[in-house]
Structures are given as structure tokens and as C-alpha cells.
Design a protein around this nucleic acid. Structure first.
Length: 426
RNA sequence: GCGGGUAUAGUGUAGCGGUUAACACGUCUGGUUGUGGCCCAGAAGAUCGUGGGUUCGAUUCCCACUACUCGCCCCA
């Protein structure tokens, strides 16, 4: 219990849970392909400064407390990626994707690492599905990213999905708004909780999604960013909404929806599912036109989203959304005495060559057929191929169906067994 | 970083200041000569999270630590 143990916040994805994961990843890949996104993988490890520059002002906090960083002997500092965007933007710049047909549309799946305190649906290692469009400022690109997310969740079987949508402004209008918000809050200091006063210092926008009691009423009267956007941002937001309206896609303008990091501009959105609170949003994303420059590359607009796979799987499980059943292994080869084990081994490989998923019964010593039958039954095998000495002598196997059908003897000559099985399993 | 809860075989639980630490599920084996599910029998599997106390004696009471868990902060 003390020695052999997972690292805090890490988890094993056992075979029983894999069908959720596989289904999610496969559906995600299919949908991405349909939307014209190409797959990409970026390293788990990057130079620390990539993430430090990428996340901007709040970086001290993350660097100190929330990132897994190792310093190599020569002093080079590396960090396990705490997000995908920085790495993908780095790959875009480093591989000269500016010279590809614009925009470049990419998606990826993989683990990310954050040294946070684990809690329901939050792990230190968790996997994300990410999609990004790089090199395009058109609000239609935002729409496409949003609809990719929405389609994915619909395809997975979620119901009652809604967009939560907001605009967070840009370097031109966001600071002006933040000042207005700060001034408003200063006038209502006495109704702010200590936590929110603290927030006002560090990251005023975050007050908007405060969970403190009474904030709802106060925030309703606070200045809303949608009313303080610059012309460019207002146009972008208006056009985005127009497109959504035109698609008949419902959305909720949520003025409390914000992102904690500076590089987000204009669009921010989440997908919520019926009955799930804001904390369990299925995904979140937005526009990050400032990132490429922040990491030292040429100014490049980008928009994308990330969806936490672990959390989506949890949600599917609590809702009873069933992925397709795991592929089964329909055949077990049993053997019984004499040289039959050797022959069974060969038979199993022969069947696998012929594309039949096959399990082979093992037996150090002589093992009863009954025991092997039990194994087959527990594994939900459809046919047990019994290879005893008499079958071996006759160059045949007994094919025993486990669904109650009659067993038959099939010759091992030529392709007879393969043909029989192909028909039976069709 | 802060706060609440929990810690007994693989899993879920019971238990008590002194017991061979129990039960269910699961696992394995067997139930006459080569055939699953039900049933029956047996077996393996726990220094009762770790370390300190209190006590004649601690799995049981107390403390600390660790881990797990739920929430807060934060959330790229």
C-alpha cells in the first residue's frame, strides 16, 4: 500500500473503461476529419519558457505551483505540457506553417499535466482533445471550431447541449472595461467577500465567475463587457452571432464567462450539457490571437478549444451514455492431453493469421476441459475449438458453440475451418 | 496553499480493548473416463495504510504522517 502506488493525481485507465476512451477518440477523429482538420502530435515535454511566455502575466503562479518542471544537468529547464495551445502554436511557427494553405486546421489528443489538487473530474495527468484553427481572423473560423465541438458531443450522444458564449475584448478594449469593472466593484466593496476582494487585485475579470453568494445580483448591475467592446471586437462578435443564428444554432450569451489568461481575445465559449453546472462544462475554448507573438513568433491569429476526455468519460458514465461494446474475442482454443497443446498453439496462430481474434487456453500441467470451458464462458467467447487427441489424430477440431447450439466436428484440412468460422461469425 | 470525510483480502463491506479478524462478490481447483452457465466442495488471498503513544494487552482509543476522496483557491 505504501510502495506500490500510483502517483497522486494519476490514474490507470483499465480495460473496462477503454471502450469509452476509444469511442471518444475515434469519434473525435472522424468529426475532425469531416470538418477538414488534420491530426498533429506535439511533444509532451517543451522548454519551460514556451509555457511561461505563452500564458503571460499570470505565469509566475503557474510556474511556481502548477507545472511539472525538470531542470537538466546543463541547466536547461523543461516542462510537461500543461496545455496544448502553446505547443501547437510553437509547431506552427517552427515548421513554417505560415507557408501552408491558410488557415491551418489541426486537432490532437493526448495527456497534459497540471500540478493541482485533484478533485472530482480533475487529475494531475488528464487527456484532452484539442482543435485549433491558425492563421484566420474571420469569425466564421470561430463558428467552425464551435460547431466542431458541438457536433462531437452530439455524435457522442449528449442531449440538451448549449453554447455559453461571450466576448472578452482585445488589448484595445479589454483594459478599458476592466477599469470600469474595477471602479464598479470599488463602489461596492462592502458587499464583496474577502475572496473576491483578493480576486479584484489579482485578476478582476475572474470576479465575474465568482461563486460567492449574492454575487449574482451584484453582477447583474455591473458593467458587462459586451457593452464596452471596441468596434472591431463588436463587429466580430456580431458576425459570429449572425452565423450561429443563420445555422439555427442556439447559444446563450453569458457575460460571466471569462478566461483567466491574458492571451484570450474576442470569442470565449463553452459547451454545457443539460443538468451539468458550469464546473462540468464539456469543453472550453476561444480566440487567442496574441499567443504566437507572446512566444516569440510572428503575429498569428488562432482560435480553438480543448475538451477534457477524463471528464467527458465520467459524464458519459453518470448519464449512462453507452459507447459501442468492446470488440470481443469470439474464439477460444482448448486442448486436452498428449501433443494437443503444441497443435493448439499452432491452430491459434493459424486463426489469427486468418484474421480471427483467438484466445488460447494455457495449461502448465494437464488441465481439465471443464476448467477451460469455464474460462471460455466467463470471457464470453462464442466458440470453443476443442483439440483432443482423437481430433488431432483425425486432423479435425470439435467446434463447440456456447450459445446452446449443437457442436460439430470440422476438418483442419485446407481452409475448411476458416470457412466454417467465417460463416458462423458473419 | 486552505478546509471536511475516509483508510480492514482483488472489490464491496462486517467486527471487537483480549477472536483462528467475519461475510459477499471475484480468483483458482475439483465434483470419476474429454465439455461452460446453476449448484456443491475445497484452496489461495489481510503483518486490519505507516509511525508513535495510552493500556497488562490495540485492528479497535488518542496523535502525527501518508494516501484516497469531496470542496475552496486556481483553472492555460
Amino acid at each position: 500500500m505504501t510502495e506500490i502506488q500510483r502517483v497522486t493525481g494519476m490514474q490507470d485507465i483499465l480495460p473496462m473503461a477503454q471502450r469509452y476512451w476509444r469511442h471518444l477518440i475515434q469519434t473525435g477523429s472522424e468529426v475532425a476529419h469531416q470538418f477538414g482538420f488534420q491530426p498533429i502530435d506535439v511533444p509532451v515535454l517543451e522548454y519551460t519558457h514556451l509555457f511561461v511566455r505563452g500564458v503571460g502575466e499570470a505565469s509566475d503562479f503557474f510556474v511556481n505551483k502548477e507545472m511539472y518542471t525538470i531542470v537538466e544537468e546543463d541547466g536547461v529547464s523543461l516542462t510537461l505540457r500543461p496545455e496544448f495551445t502553446a505547443g501547437i502554436v510553437r509547431a506552427y511557427v517552427e515548421n513554417g506553417m505560415q507557408n501552408w494553405v491558410q488557415p491551418v486546421k489541426l486537432f490532437t489528443v493526448g495527456p497534459i499535466f497540471r500540478r493541482e489538487r485533484p478533485q472530482a473530474g480533475r487529475f494531475r495527468q488528464h487527456s484532452q482533445y484539442n482543435a485549433e484553427i491558425m492563421g484566420e481572423t474571420d469569425p466564421a473560423a470561430d463558428v467552425e471550431v464551435m460547431m466542431l465541438a458541438m457536433t462531437l458531443f452530439q455524435r457522442l450522444g449528449f442531449r440538451g447541449l448549449t453554447f455559453q458564449l461571450n466576448s472578452t475584448g482585445c488589448p484595445a478594449c479589454k483594459p478599458v472595461y476592466v477599469e470600469k469593472l474595477r471602479a464598479f466593484m470599488a463602489d461596492h466593496l462592502q458587499s464583496l467577500s474577502p475572496v473576491d476582494r483578493e480576486r479584484m487585485q489579482r485578476n478582476p475579470l475572474r470576479i465575474l465567475d465568482s461563486k460567492e453568494p449574492g454575487m449574482e445580483k451584484l453582477l447583474a448591475n455591473a458593467p458587462h463587457i459586451a457593452d464596452h467592446l471596441c468596434a472591431d471586437c463588436a463587429d466580430h462578435f456580431a458576425e459570429l452571432r449572425q452565423h450561429l443564428d443563420h445555422l439555427g444554432q442556439a447559444y446563450t450569451i453569458n457575460f460571466r464567462l471569462v478566461r483567466g489568461i491574458d492571451y484570450y481575445v474576442k470569442t470565449v465559449f463553452e459547451v454545457w450539457a443539460e443538468g451539468i453546472g458550469a464546473q462540468a462544462a464539456l469543453c472550453g475554448g476561444g480566440r487567442y490571437d496574441g499567443v504566437a507573438e507572446a512566444i516569440g513568433g510572428p503575429s498569428t491569429p488562432g482560435v480553438g478549444f480543448g475538451a477534457g476526455i477524463d471528464r467527458i468519460v465520467l459524464t458519459m458514465q453518470t448519464w449512462g451514455i453507452e459507447p459501442p461494446p468492446a470488440p470481443e474475442v469470439p474464439i477460444l482454443v482448448a486442448h486436452f492431453g498428449g501433443d494437443t497443446k503444441t497443435a493448439a498453439l499452432a491452430l491459434a496462430f493459424r486463426l489469427r493469421q486468418a484474421q480471427f481474434p483467438t484466445r488460447l487456453a494455457f495449461a502448465r500441467e494437464r488441465r481439465s476441459l471443464k476448467s477451460q470451458m469455464r474460462e471460455a464462458n466467463k470471457l464470453n467467447v462464442r466458440y470453443v475449438l476443442i483439440l483432443g487427441e482423437s481430433e488431432l489424430a483425425a486432423n479435425a477440431v470439435v467446434v463447440r458453440p456456447l450459445d446452446g447450439g449443437a457442436q460439430v466436428t470440422v476438418s483442419l484440412a485446407e481452409e475448411q475451418l476458416e470457412q466454417w468460422l467465417r460463416q458462423a461469425l458473419a
